Simulated assay, not measured.
Amino acid sequence: MSLIAEEIRSKAEVFQGPEICREMVKKMLAETNLPNGLIPLDNIEECGHVKESGFVWFKRKEKKDYRFKSTGKLVSYAPEITGYVDKNRIKKLTGIKSQELAIWVSVKEVYVPDTPNGKITFKAPLGLFKTYPVSMFEIDDVGEIADEVTVLEQEKETKKD
């Protein structure tokens, strides 16, 4: 069931199809000064943006799990991700979780301070946060996250061999 009400959809710019959604998500991230690898861009079927409130959503058919090699963090992206974008941040996020030890922690806010230090901070409920270099979430010219993000299913296949 979708979290996006028809009332919200009627106020939004809505895009459908992987190619147009990929470009629109990249554009939105660039306009808000967030790294272009923050949201996996493959297989997004629908995205929307309500400019007056900053509300955004991204939909894909199934959840996506990634392990970032340089941090060792496993991140899970739900089939539907929502949040509110503003300059240098996305807040009130739903649909993104990071595994810390054996516990899954929801990511509720992501921000890049207006400083030249090149850091990005991920906040969880109860004041927990992690800070990383922004470069870990940048996509190169061929569309790959610079940190060599590996799809979890590919890791399972490698272990079977």
Rank of each mutant, 00 (worst) to 15 (best):
M1G: 12
M1A: 11
S2D: 06
S2E: 06
I4G: 04
A5V: 04
I8V: 15
V14S: 08
V14M: 11
F15P: 00
Q16K: 15
P18R: 00
I20W: 04
I20H: 00
C21E: 02
C21R: 05
R22H: 12
R22T: 09
E23R: 14
M24I: 08
M24S: 08
V25L: 13
V25S: 10
V25M: 12
K27I: 07
K27T: 08
L29T: 01
E31I: 07
T32V: 12
N33P: 01
N33C: 12
N33S: 15
P35I: 09
N36R: 05
G37H: 00
G37Q: 03
L38V: 06
L41E: 01
L41S: 02
E45V: 01
C47Y: 04
G48M: 01
H49D: 05
H49C: 11
V50P: 00
K51E: 10
E52T: 10
G54L: 10
V56Q: 03
V56P: 01
F58W: 00
R60E: 07
K64F: 15
D65K: 09
R67C: 13
F68H: 08
K69S: 11
S70P: 13
S70E: 13
T71N: 01
T71I: 10
L74E: 11
L74N: 02
S76Q: 08
Y77I: 07
E80V: 03
E80A: 06
I81M: 04
I81L: 14
K87Y: 14
N88S: 11
R89S: 09
I90V: 15
K92V: 08
K92R: 11
L93P: 07
T94Q: 06
G95V: 06
G95F: 00
I96T: 04
I96N: 04
K97C: 01
K97V: 05
Q99L: 15
Q99I: 09
Q99S: 11
E100T: 14
L101Q: 12
L101A: 12
W104L: 12
K108I: 12
E109A: 14
Y111P: 03
V112G: 04
T115V: 09
T115W: 02
P116D: 14
N117I: 08
K119P: 06
I120R: 01
T121D: 02
L126V: 05
L126G: 03
G127Y: 00
G127N: 05
K130A: 09
T131Y: 02
Y132K: 08
Y132C: 02
M136K: 09
F137N: 04
I139H: 00
V142H: 10
V142R: 10
V142P: 00
G143T: 02
G143C: 08
A146W: 00
A146T: 13
A146N: 13
A146I: 14
D147Y: 00
T150W: 01
V151D: 09
V151T: 08
L152K: 06
L152E: 10
E153Y: 12
E153D: 14
E157I: 13
T158V: 13
T158I: 14
K160I: 12
